[in-house]
Structures are given as structure tokens and as C-alpha cells.
Simulated scan of single mutants.
Amino acid sequence: MRQLTVYFDGWCPLCQKSKWFLERLDRFDQLTFIDARRVQTFEQPLLLERMHVETTQGVRHAGIHGIRLLTKTLLVLRPVDPFVSLSIRLGIGAVIYDKVAKNRVIPVSCTTDCRIN
């Protein structure tokens, strides 16, 4: 039963490793992953700034709040939830998450129709 949709940056090595890690922890098939680079919508730039986690009701949680939703949903991550929640309450969770997100390295990548003019 898929409960959450996780939007990630498919060009980002850190995001790919995070996806791989979450896939291994998802023992009950609760997560669906979508590469935000393949989403053709006006929201794409926003989706690429931070990981977004969307509920079945269509509510999206970005960054550290998405991480918190994952720690509440995945049984194996529940012991970490109090620390993530505390980091949010103290105001440092978002700061740390955003610092990592802004400093991640995305190698140059092309699609099959990439052309140099």
C-alpha cells in the first residue's frame, strides 16, 4: 500500500543515494519515487530545491518536514523521529537541511535530445 510519494532530483548523487537508502528501508512498499527532473510542470524548480514528500491526500511536505513525515511513516525510522522533531522545534533542522541542499553538487547531465547550438 503506497502512502507517500517522494520527489527527488534524479541528477543529484546525494539525492540518488537517499532514494536508494529509503528504498531499502521501505519494507512495506509505502513509498513511490518520482524524479522531479521528469515532472513537466511549473512546480519543477520548486521540487528540485528540496526533497518533497506528498501524502495520498495531495499534501506536500518539503525539506526537513518531508524527512519528518518519512520518520513517522517508515517503521525502521521511527526511533529517529523525536530527534528530527526536536530539530524542527529548535529551528536548526531546516537550517541544516537547507545548507546541505544548497551545497549539493549536481554534475552536468544531458537527456537524449541534448544539443549544443
Score class of each variant (00 low, 15 high):
Lys72Gln: 15
Ala36Cys: 07
Val100Leu: 14
Leu74Ser: 12
Glu43Ser: 11
Thr73Val: 08
Lys17His: 13
Ser18Gly: 13
Ala101Leu: 06
Glu54Trp: 04
Leu48Asp: 02
Leu69Tyr: 05
Ile64His: 04
Gln44Pro: 00
Arg78Lys: 09
Phe33Tyr: 08
Lys99Leu: 14
Gln40Asn: 10
Thr111Met: 04
Val108Asn: 06
Pro13Asn: 11
Gly93Thr: 02
Ile96Tyr: 14
Val80Cys: 06
Ile34Pro: 00
His65Phe: 13
Cys110Gly: 12
Ile116Asp: 14
Gly93Gln: 02
Leu69Ser: 04
Val108Thr: 10
Pro45Gln: 13
Asp26Thr: 01
Cys114Tyr: 05
Ser85Trp: 15
Phe42Cys: 00
Gln40Arg: 10
Cys110Thr: 09
Ile116Met: 08
Arg104His: 10
Ala62Lys: 04
Asp26Trp: 03
Asp9Asn: 15
Asp98Val: 00
Thr5Lys: 08
Ile64Arg: 01
Gln57Phe: 06
Gln44Phe: 06
Val6His: 07
Asn117Phe: 09
Ile67Ser: 05
Leu70Gly: 00
Gln16Trp: 11
Ser87Val: 03
Arg89Tyr: 07
Val53Phe: 08
Leu69Pro: 01
Arg68His: 13
Thr111Ile: 03
Thr73Asn: 06
Pro45Lys: 06
Leu31Phe: 12
Pro107Ile: 12
Asp81Leu: 01
Gly93Glu: 04
Arg78Trp: 13
Val80Arg: 01
Trp11Ser: 11
Thr56Ala: 13
Thr112Tyr: 08
Gly66Leu: 03
Pro45Asp: 14
Gly10Asn: 13
Ser18Cys: 10
Phe8Ala: 14
Glu23Gly: 00
Met1Ile: 10
Val95Pro: 03
Leu22Cys: 08
Leu86Trp: 15
Ser18Val: 02
Met51Val: 15
Cys15Thr: 03
Asp35Arg: 03
Leu22Arg: 01
Leu75Tyr: 12
Arg78Glu: 15
Glu49Gln: 14
Val100Trp: 10
Leu25Arg: 05
Arg27Gln: 12
His65Met: 08
Thr5Asp: 15
Leu90Pro: 03
Phe21Glu: 04
His61Thr: 02
Ala101Glu: 02
Arg24Leu: 08
Lys17Thr: 05
Gln16Arg: 15
Leu77Glu: 03
Thr73Arg: 11
Leu77Gln: 02
Cys110Gln: 09
Arg27Leu: 08
Arg78Ser: 05
Gly58Asn: 09
Asp81Asn: 06
Thr55Leu: 12
Leu69Lys: 01
Leu74Gly: 06
Ser109Met: 13
Val59Gln: 12
Leu86Ala: 12
Ile106Leu: 14
Pro79Ala: 08
Glu54Ala: 02
Thr32Ala: 06
Ser87Asn: 09
Trp20His: 15
Asp29Val: 00
Ile64Tyr: 05
Ile92Asn: 09
Ile96Leu: 15
Gln40Asp: 10
Thr56Met: 08
Asp98Thr: 05
Thr73Gln: 13
Arg2Gln: 13
Pro82Cys: 01
Ser85Tyr: 14
Gln3Gly: 14
Val59His: 11
Ser109His: 15
Arg2Phe: 07
Gly66Ile: 02
Asp35Asn: 04
Ala62Met: 07
Arg115Ala: 05
